[in-house]
Design a protein around this nucleic acid. Structure first.
Ligand SMILES: [Mn+2]
Ligand SMILES: [Mn+2]
Ligand SMILES: [Zn+2]
Ligand SMILES: [Zn+2]
Lengths: 133, 133
DNA sequence: TAGATTATTAGAATCATTCTAAACTAAAAA
DNA sequence: TTTTTAGTTTAGAATGATTCTAATAATCTA
């Protein structure tokens, strides 16, 4: 039984062809930042039969199970991340790519006061990049 | 001539009823964080005749002219901000509201290294809030 | 006031994502 | 094994935010 199947089994998700392909992709790299559109393109290329609805279903499911992190960058594209640590991102709009910024690469000497009655739920930091002329 | 008309004149935008109403609204408050949906609701309430297309046209135009700043929060809603300073935000998802974090309320003692060949274009920081317990 | 220019609008189009409901498949039970 | 069940995939419709189109209307300038 391959790693992908193991992971799916642990999460009580049936190892369908589609799921195994998705998880294979995700575990094949150290770090993955992926969108539904990029992933379906990759899988179709590999001759895997899969629909966009299934891509979304599964990426969301994997996020629910804590195997991926889900977030948005700038406007309406949903990203999934295999890096489960709390971390931040550079966004390279030329390539439509994210680059991790680990938490230890940033530190705050001063943090804003949280409004009364509220607590921090999460922090999103995106540093948008452009080409050096 | 009222302030709104002045502002529009300076930007070479004709002071139509719709534009004056929009600009009146944004100069009527110290700080405004507004979305197209919130603004049209407000204006309709004031019995101003305006379409959603016009709201978008004008907010985008005002952003082009540097009178508003445009940005996105988390997923697909476009926000416009009268605070033109470089600054960050708390996002209160309960109320669907933004709260400014001025630049002097945050400072970094360590910043991540920008990838080669790239330069920083902008930084987005959003601190998502939730209710205390 | 005419003619030129700019603005507004309804509704269609677009795009990412979710939903629906039918067809299918893997796993469990018999 | 076969049957049953529960979970999965899928095409295509629906949704929601935003933009586009192209017709109509308002403003400006001479
Ligand atoms: Mn959307
Ligand atoms: Mn959108
Ligand atoms: Zn990441
Ligand atoms: Zn602001």
């Amino acid at each position: 039984m391959n790693d992908a199947k193991e992971i799916l089994k642990k999460s009580k998700l049936r190892p369908t062809i589609q799921r195994v392909a998705i998880v294979d992709y995700i575990i094949g790299k150290h770090k993955v930042h992926i969108t539904a559109a990029k992933l379906i393109k990759y899988l179709k290329n590999k001759k895997i039969n899969i629909s966009l609805a299934t891509i979304y279903n599964n990426l969301n499911e994997l996020a629910d199970k804590g195997i991926l992190k889900k977030f948005y960058v700038n406007n309406d594209k949903m990203w999934f991340d295999t890096n489960l640590q709390d971390h931040y991102h550079f966004y390279d709009s030329e390539k439509d790519e994210l680059i991790d910024i680990n938490k230890n690469e940033i530190s705050f000497s001063k943090s804003p006061k949280i409004p009364n009655g509220k607590i921090k739920e999460s922090i999103n930091i995106i540093i948008n990049l452009k080409n050096k002329n």
